[in-house]
Amino acid sequence: MNEHGRHAMETMQKHDPATFAQIADPETHFSTLGEEIQQQIWELSEQLTPVRGDEPPLEYVGLVNMAKLRAREMVYQEMIYADLPQEPEEMETTPLPQND
């Protein structure tokens, strides 16, 4: 299982244990999902990587790395986080005014 599959498995265990418990073979399921995630990240990062211009080499390396990180963020959102149950928002607590 690659890092993406492991992350997906740990995330589901923590945030959606009921659905995780219904998966008959988590090892196989998340190994396959991890490979699918990796493929999507590669494809999307290629699309997001800008064409090499006149920028210095290190600047271009930075642009390529940012494209990879952005692709990972987008694929994780779509393939891991989107199907998780919504967590309740924390309520703001403001003190009530005191009547003297």
Rank of each mutant, 00 (worst) to 15 (best):
I23E: 04
I37F: 01
D83R: 15
R6E: 15
G62S: 10
M1W: 07
I80Y: 03
D25F: 05
V75F: 01
G53C: 07
Q38P: 01
L84D: 02
E59D: 11
Q13N: 06
L33P: 00
H4V: 04
R52C: 05
Y76H: 05
E3K: 15
Q77D: 14
Q47H: 12
E10M: 15
N65R: 08
Q77K: 12
V61C: 05
E3F: 08
K14M: 15
D100K: 09
G34K: 00
Q13H: 08
E89V: 03
L58D: 13
P17I: 07
W42H: 12
F20D: 04
N2F: 05
L48P: 02
H29K: 08
E35S: 09
E92F: 12
V61G: 02
E59G: 02
L58V: 06
E35L: 06
E36S: 09
G53E: 08
P50N: 07
G62R: 08
Q22T: 15
K68I: 04
P88M: 05
W42I: 13
V64T: 02
E10Y: 09
E87P: 00
P17D: 09
L84I: 01
A82W: 09
Q13I: 11
L84C: 03
L63P: 00
M74F: 07
T93A: 07
Q86W: 04
I80T: 00
T11D: 05
N65W: 01
T94I: 13
N2D: 10
A67Q: 01
A82H: 13
A18T: 11
V61T: 10
E89A: 15
P85W: 04
I41D: 01
T11P: 04
D100V: 10
N65V: 02
G5N: 04
G53H: 06
M66P: 00
E43M: 11
P88L: 08
P26N: 11
E87I: 02
E27D: 15
E87L: 10
E27R: 10
E27V: 09
E55Y: 03
E35P: 00
V51A: 14
P26D: 09
Y81S: 03
K68C: 03
I80K: 02
